[in-house]
């Protein structure tokens, strides 16, 4: 079912692209080509032990109240699948390992920091922005809380404080923007005991990921999730089983905001289409008005028309 969906969506995207032929070279977020240093983070699910220290570190780094680190060794939490919420910007979930049931697969979830982020394209006020290094951050001073970013995000990452009447926030991983200002690694990367989260330059990280798959072909499936998905992401995953079974959405390779931006820029190409429409309507108005004035001069016709109206 999902597979069929993807094919449809690709077809959809193809039509969208053909539509964009009518658009112009107006700068689109989805067109910006990655340049310079781009962060990449590799999640090696084979190395992750599910200690959830990243969750703890993340909360501490973002001033979210949290219990002590010791309490995080409670494994019963893994029984149900957890998602992000306003108080947790990252969560680790446990998945069954068919090869060895006693050693489950752990998958960390957080914002993927897309190369071509749909949320940035969608945000009505530009509160979300993609920085040079590839991280996607949110500006509390701009956001109006419309939650369109949540609609747009293919990974369903941004969350919202539904229970706060004043200053509710859109929350998602910001790759520890504040920590990185002081040349520190993101909190989760820094605390990970096994470096299951490998932080580096994206190209270098990709190379390492490919090497690991090559070296252990019996362990990893030959797929780096995030290398190509919706135009590539900052966070990438390698795993021993299909990502569909790890609740990672099966996504195509075309950027999420591509079609929508093509349409948008088609409609608004340098304001040419709206202005043209305005001119056309004005012309029609002028032409028809002249005709109706001519009609008015023709008394008989006018009388007839008036008669028609009155009765």
């Amino acid at each position: 079912m999902k597979d069929i969906n993807r094919r449809d969506f690709l077809k959809t995207a193809a039509i969208g692209v053909s539509m964009s032929v009518f658009g112009t070279k107006f700068l689109k977020a989805s067109d910006e080509s990655p340049s310079g240093y781009r962060i990449g983070i590799l999640v090696d699910t084979d190395v992750c032990v599910g200690c959830r220290h990243c969750e703890w570190a993340c909360k501490v780094a973002h001033n979210i109240p949290t219990a002590s680190l010791e309490s995080y060794s409670d494994n019963s939490l893994f029984k149900e699948y957890r998602r992000l919420d306003a108080a947790s910007l990252t969560v680790v979930n446990e998945f069954e390992n068919e090869k060895n049931p006693s050693l489950p697969v752990y998958v960390k979830k957080q914002c993927m920091h897309c190369e071509k982020p749909a949320c940035v394209s969608a945000c009505i006020v530009g509160a979300l922005s993609k920085l040079e290094d590839g991280s996607v951050v949110w500006d509390t001073k701009k956001c109006i809380g419309c939650r369109y970013c949540m609609v747009a995000c293919q990974f369903q990452i941004p969350t919202f404080d539904y229970d706060k009447p004043i200053d509710p926030q859109i929350r998602k991983c910001d790759l520890c923007y504040d920590r990185r200002k002081t040349e520190k690694l993101p909190a989760c990367v820094s605390i990970c005991p096994t470096e299951a989260l490998l932080f580096g330059e994206r190209d270098e990280i990709l190379r390492v990921a490919k090497n690991r798959i090559k070296r252990k072909p019996d362990v990893y499936i030959n797929h780096i999730y995030g290398e190509q998905e919706i135009g590539g992401t900052t966070w990438m995953y390698i795993a021993s089983k299909s990502f569909d079974n790890l609740k990672m959405p099966p996504l195509g390779n075309s950027p999420a905001p591509g079609t929508s931006e093509s349409i948008q820029h088609g409609i608004f190409a340098y304001f040419v289409p709206p202005v043209t429409l305005y001119a056309i309507l004005g012309t029609i108005m002028w032409l028809t008005k002249r005709r109706s004035n001519e009609n008015k001069e023709n008394r008989i016709e006018f009388e007839q028309e008036k008669k028609g109206v009155d009765t």
């Binding site: 190395v47 032990v49 200690c51 220290h53 060794s73 096994t194 470096e195 270098e204 990280i205 390492v208």
Partner: peptide, 23 residues
Amino acid sequence: VSVPDLKAAFHRQCISCHKQWSH
């Protein structure tokens, strides 16, 4: 980053057998 850092290197040695340990 092709080689794990020291902390990771130590822990990976541990978890190759003790993967089920928790805090």
